[in-house]
Amino acid sequence: MSDSMPGRPDAVLTLDAAAHPADIVQRAAYRFSDVLTVELDRNGDTLVCRVYARDPQRLGSAIHDLRAEIVDQVLRARIRDETQDLRNLVLSVAFSRTGLAGPAA
């Protein structure tokens, strides 16, 4: 994201970039996009997440919710990656003999 966000952030989270890829943090932030917006910057091994509250009065609980959601998103990503082959296998079995799951061109 660019640095075009006006004003100072309402909070800044500093995260280990290896454990918290930007995609994970973006997925977590999306779930609270009615409450806050974020700006991400990669700085070496660190991911800096600047948080802007739509409603500053709700910021306190929103930050805790965002932190908890980032942890959940890490788990979601792990399950997604671990089970990707199985998911594709289920889908291929489900749609076999339908003509929809033919070999790729």
Partner: peptide
């Protein structure tokens, strides 16, 4: 043991809803 694809949402009372594929 290994995971099959699943998704989850947390409940405010501490429970976690898990749904399979």
């Amino acid at each position: 043991l290994e995971h099959l694809p699943f998704r989850f949402e947390r409940w405010t009372d501490g429970r976690v809803l898990v749904t399979n594929m």
